[in-house]
């Protein structure tokens, strides 16, 4: 089987005996060494990361233009976001970046179990990021439905008009409708351009969240392969590139957090 990173000695076990998979890995026949293959793969991945940065560059540019033209709308819109959720998510992503880097180090040193544990931690951090984003930010803002233990609820206690899923969710009258563009239906807005702010907010954080999901899938793939002992000191290209992707996701969030949550 030849998949993303599973090329191994075609003679396989007969010749190599019980060597782990990473020791049996052979670089493509057109490379002089595994080093060269690794360098080329990494360079290719950096070129891909450049296109990713340019994708987000469009969004940052839109943000710049629209904020420049409608500073009040952006200050207004940003004040609906709770910086504490943003800061918590920043911390979660920074920790996940650390565990990702540490897991690459573990595979370089052939600490298999530690490497797998760190990969799993990274995955869980990504999951936590998404859960926080969807539960405490997207859902209430779009629909007005809060999860019952959301600390913001006590402020809106007098406006709760419905309960859902046996009291797990509570609906605050008038809170929802902070949707992008023409889907906007929030009645208490203070600036005519606020729908634009929500368009930028959902585009930027939504595309970022999509990257988190893709990154988590790659990490899950790495975890599965790592259990087969596919990565070790002489071959860990897939983990390295997954790490690069994950750090890029972190990098984008480092800029999105102050731009969206801390402006006034």
């Amino acid at each position: 089987m030849t998949t993303l990173d599973s090329r191994s000695n075609p003679l396989g076990q007969d010749v190599q005996g019980s060597e782990p998979l990473w020791k049996r890995y052979l670089p493509g026949h057109h490379w002089r060494s595994g080093e060269e293959e690794f360098d080329a793969c990494t360079l290719g991945f950096w070129l891909f990361l450049a296109t990713e940065v340019l994708l987000f560059a469009g969004l940052f540019c839109a943000y710049t233009v629209l904020r420049y033209k409608h500073p009040e709308a952006f200050a207004n819109g940003s004040s609906y976001l709770d910086w504490r959720w943003g800061a918590l998510n920043t911390v979660v992503l920074l920790i996940s970046s650390y565990t990702m880097a540490a897991s690459i180090r573990a595979f370089q040193l052939n600490h298999q179990k530690q490497g797998r544990m760190l990969l799993a931690t990274t995955f869980i951090c990504g999951l936590a990021f998404l859960l926080i984003k969807f539960t405490f930010e997207y859902t209430p803002k779009l629909s007005g439905w809060f999860i019952s233990f959301d600390p913001a609820l006590h402020h809106y206690a007098s406006l709760i008009d419905k309960e859902g899923m046996w009291g797990l969710f509570k609906h605050v009258e008038g809170y929802g409708g902070k949707a992008p563009g023409q889907f906007f239906s929030y009645a208490f807005s203070e600036d005519a351009w606020e729908p634009l702010w929500w368009s930028v907010y959902y585009c930027a954080t939504g595309i970022h969240a999509l990257h988190v999901i893709i990154g988590m899938s790659l990490i899950a793939w790495c975890f599965r392969r790592a259990r087969m002992l596919a990565y070790g000191p002489s071959h860990y290209t897939m983990v390295e590139n997954t790490g690069l992707y994950w750090h890029l996701v972190d990098l984008i969030w480092i800029f999105l957090f102050p731009l969206l949550y801390l402006i006034h």
Binding site: S78, S79, L81, D82, W83, H155, Y156, L159, Y175, E190
Partner: peptide, 11 residues
């Protein structure tokens, strides 16, 4: 109630 105050920002 809904404008500014409940969600982190008092500004």
């Amino acid at each position: 109630i809904l404008s500014h105050g409940g969600h982190g920002s008092t500004h």
